[in-house]
Nucleic acid binder design. Structure first.
Length: 304
DNA sequence: AGCTCTTCCTGAAAGC
DNA sequence: TGCTTTCAGGAAGAGC
């Protein structure tokens, strides 16, 4: 499943060859995952690719018109989310077309950028560059850029489960199920922990764990669990270094206890029951002290 | 605010 | 063997 490290790997691959290339033609198969196929077909042919960047799990291909009379120079961003099974591969035009290939971007050098997506959970849309800020504004911070203080602030007042927050793209952009579980394992935190009940030390540990796991996963070119491959069709290797994800029943690499799997935030969540102890039931005051009172106290201390 | 449930989709795996 | 059922999951939306 493509999450931040996988998308980063794809983007780095595309960056090596796409910038400077012109798009000659766009062809579609199924388009039910494309917001505005007509606009893509209208604006991209003839455009030149200027940049390839990543925003969370989104790939952003910046283009500019090459038509000399186009004034002001029109610029568009092609936004692509790989969903569960999306692949964006650069291949020669004469290479055979695999099943579930739904979009072809024919380039001016005899190659094509092909989008393949078995389950079509991905998404594709074209936006004017002027609308890019609005699009990215709906997403949270980059996990590799956020500082420790800011990270703590996003979590310490939330009553949601820590796993749900890690997966929430409006909090942090780019983390999915694999890296949420792997980060929580490294931070020794149970996925069902309520964020506001976590200590500052635990939050700082989680911040470090998230960055460490993502950076390491990028170094190993992502995790190939089912369909993921990079822009050259190569699989990643971080799946061999997963410590809990899809290791249910296997021994914990730290303490040998059997890895368990539970549903948290509607997702399979893998954890070590010994290293990541379950949250203790909330102490309920007889007079009905609201659980948030403790958090408010912490906030006040923080303000000082 | 935050939870669960549903929807989208296909193919692998489990069940009968 | 061969069919049917279940499950996986990112994100968005409904409803509680």
């Amino acid at each position: 499943m493509p999450e931040l490290p996988e998308v980063e790997t794809v983007v780095r691959g595309l960056c090596l060859t796409l910038p400077g290339r012109a798009i000659v033609e766009v062809r579609f198969g199924k388009t039910d995952f494309v917001d505005n196929p007509a606009e893509i077909a209208e604006h991209l042919p003839g455009a030149r690719i200027a940049s390839v960047t990543r925003f969370g799990k989104f790939i952003c291909i910046g283009t500019e018109s090459t038509a000399p009379q186009a004034a002001p120079r029109s610029q568009f961003c092609l936004i692509i989310h790989l969903g569960m099974t999306g692949q964006l591969k650069l291949m020669r035009s004469n290479e055979s077309v695999t099943r579930h290939t739904h979009v072809f971007f024919v380039l001016d050098d005899g190659r094509e950028l092909r989008y393949t997506d078995t389950r079509r959970f991905g998404r594709m849309l074209l936006i004017a560059e002027s609308g890019l800020a609005e699009f990215t504004g709906r997403l949270g911070m980059e996990p590799l850029e956020i500082g420790a203080e800011e990270f703590c602030r996003y979590f310490e007042l939330r009553r949601a489960r820590v796993k749900a927050l890690l997966l929430d793209q409006k909090v942090l952009r780019g983390i999915g199920n694999i890296y949420a579980d792997e980060s929580l394992f490294r931070a020794r935190l149970h996925p069902a922990r309520i964020a506001e009940n976590m200590t500052r030390k635990q939050l700082l540990g989680l911040h470090g764990a998230v960055r460490q796991v993502l950076a390491e996963a990028i170094r190993f070119r992502g995790s190939s669990i089912s369909d993921y491959v990079d822009s050259n069709g190569n699989r990643g290797e971080f799946q061999f270094r997963h410590r809990v994800y899809q290791r249910e029943g296997k021994p914990c690499v730290r303490c040998r206890a059997k890895i368990k799997r539970v549903i948290v935030a509607g997702r399979s969540s893998h954890f070590c029951p010994r290293c990541q102890p379950a949250p203790r039931g909330r102490k309920r005051s007889k007079r009905g002290l609201k659980p948030s009172a403790a958090a408010k106290t912490r906030l006040n201390e923080h303000e000082k």
